[in-house]
């Protein structure tokens, strides 16, 4: 059990360091994306599968929209993740598509306050 904990901690540190390093090395400026193209790319690249068509999240993936992570942060995560989400390297998801996806997620409307939805206050 002790060895497991130690190994797990080392792995987690390595993962976090990799993520931070990737974030620091990421280009500072990303081209602005197109929300319309991003909607298509979100489906084509399978993002909807775990996060839902509106990026609302579920048990299979966290909520992405509205208010997604900054594009730079999102890019660093998507390219380098070693967690539950499989990585999308540039060979399978271009920078342009990623920027479009980010634009699509940013365009999603703010969720209503649950207190105003009768079905959520039975």
């Amino acid at each position: 059990m002790k060895m497991n904990v130690l190994l797990s901690s080392i792995r987690n540190c390595a993962k976090n360091l990799g993520f931070v390093a990737a974030l620091l090395l990421a280009p500072l400026a990303f081209a602005a994306g197109s929300a319309e193209k991003g909607k298509t790319a979100f489906v084509q690249h399978g993002c909807w599968q775990c996060h839902g068509f509106a990026g609302q999240g579920g048990v299979t993936g966290p909520k992405l929209a509205p208010n997604p992570l900054p594009l730079e942060t999102m890019s660093a995560f998507v390219r380098n993740t070693r967690g539950g989400m499989p990585p999308y390297q540039k060979a399978i998801l271009s920078e342009a598509d990623l920027a479009d996806i980010h634009a699509y997620l940013s365009s999603q409307p703010k969720a209503p306050d649950y207190k105003g939805i009768p079905l959520l206050n039975p």
């Binding site: 839902g52 068509f53 509106a54 609302q56 999240g57 579920g58 909520k63 969720a111 209503p112 306050d113 649950y114 939805i117 079905l119 959520l120 206050n121």
Partner: peptide, 22 residues
């Protein structure tokens, strides 16, 4: 949980949260 259920409340196809609460 309720606030999470409200996200994409009016989406189509219908969200699983909306489905369950309806």
């Amino acid at each position: 949980a309720k606030q999470a259920a409200a996200v994409a409340w009016d989406a189509s196809p219908i969200s699983t949260a909306r489905l369950c609460m309806e």
